[in-house]
Design a protein around this nucleic acid. Structure first.
Lengths: 224, 224
DNA sequence: GCATGTGAATGGATTCACAGCT
DNA sequence: AGCTGTGAATCCATTCACATGC
């Protein structure tokens, strides 16, 4: 039984003993290491990393220990080595393909989103049930396709990740559609709690909640 | 000293004793109550709410207790009453104005985003430093304005929330610009950790991290 | 009787502190 | 000497369980 926290944010598989919190930090470390490597840094200590993120160095060591004993006592971590291990653990050492369902403003923006089209990810399809949109393409040239092409694209391109960018009322139906078509991981932008199926990882991004959290902070910390 | 968890997600003010986790759930409850009220339900118990969200009823009661003693023992909560208290606590009983910096695909999509333009929020400005974009408008008619209009709009419209939708290298500069112009809460979509100033609430949405978390789940739960 | 509000218990994430390797 | 890896300690969120009030 997953904790409600994970229930809401990401659910499906907090793999092994690695929690969602740790996973997200691993992703942050990976980004940082890529920058360090580009800057020519060859070795880094957990204390130095901790400084950058305002994190505790023990936490970083614990997080990294999930990948095996990669550190060298008395020295630190080899940047290149650690980066490649992290990339492998996060599964971005190869390219995972993504399709997006919903070609509204958000879906189109996400299809061309830089972070979704580099270093291990690639958007290979954009779908919508509105006939009027079919045939058009995003600026980056991703064509908007009808729903009946969905299954074929997922199968032939070996798509693993589906993004839901449709209005709330349609989200559950689209989710089921994606799962039936073989999608194993879903990133949901619709403001609904999706009924999830066994073995499918689902993460929701609810922008309204983020806004209201900020608004809540504003109601108290009014500096006047 | 905030915990790293909050540090990364939302920071600035975990107001009173109310944690970020609780705040996010309050936002979810509010949405649910609006639906219940629309459906004509007048009273609801924590147990019934718990069912909907796969949450523990005690947690819901604890969360709601933050707003005062709103429940009626032996009965439950009055939907309309609770909803209005929640709306007030989250600060959406009045309209908070938003400006977006960065008129790329994402910025434009967010400007027209439904959840950002109803029930307590309104996008009143979209800014970009690219001259070529000025004068154009989003589909919903929000014009793209030059940076030198920023301060005037924030002041005259009493804008409280700023959204950063620019590439990573520009994000910190834009953040400082917004804070200097009087913005008290920031929703950041750039994949960087922003240096934050005292009294400014900052929440970051990092889509790349969400994707990599899903990818991580996929590397293990390969159903074959 | 029934459902809230809450102190106490639990569980999990973070931090401390130090043994152990280089 | 320096820094990792990790058991022990701490902190905080969640859950239990019951006294309290309708």
């Amino acid at each position: 039984m997953p904790s409600p926290l994970k229930e809401r944010r990401t659910s499906g598989a907090a793999r092994d003993g690695v929690s969602e919190f740790t996973t997200e930090r691993l992703s942050i470390y990976l980004r940082c290491l890529a920058q360090l490597e580009a800057a020519g840094v060859t070795t880094i200590s957990s204390a130095k990393l901790a400084e950058r993120f305002h994190l505790n160095s023990a936490q970083i060591r614990k997080d990294l220990a999930c990948l095996g004993e990669l550190g060298i006592r008395g020295v630190g971590y080899r940047v290149a080595d650690l980066r490649s291990h992290l990339a492998q653990a996060l599964g971005v050492d190869r390219t995972r393909k993504i399709i997006i369902f919903g070609a509204g403003n958000l879906g189109i923006a996400l299809a061309d989103h830089r972070g979704f089209n580099i270093d291990g990810f690639e958007v290979v399809g954009l779908f919508d049930d509105d006939d009027a949109k079919h045939g058009r393409s995003t600026r980056n040239g991703i064509p908007i396709q009808p729903v009946d092409r969905l299954e074929a694209v997922i199968a032939s391109e070996r798509v693993e990740i589906g993004i839901i960018a449709v209005p709330a009322p349609a989200a559950q139906e689209v989710c089921d559609l994606l799962v039936d078509a073989g999608i194993a991981a879903i990133l949901n932008f619709a403001p609904v709690q999706l009924r999830q199926r066994e073995g499918v990882a689902v993460t929701s991004v609810d922008l309204r909640i983020n806004l209201e959290s900020l608004s809540f902070a504003l109601t108290s910390v009014r500096k006047d």
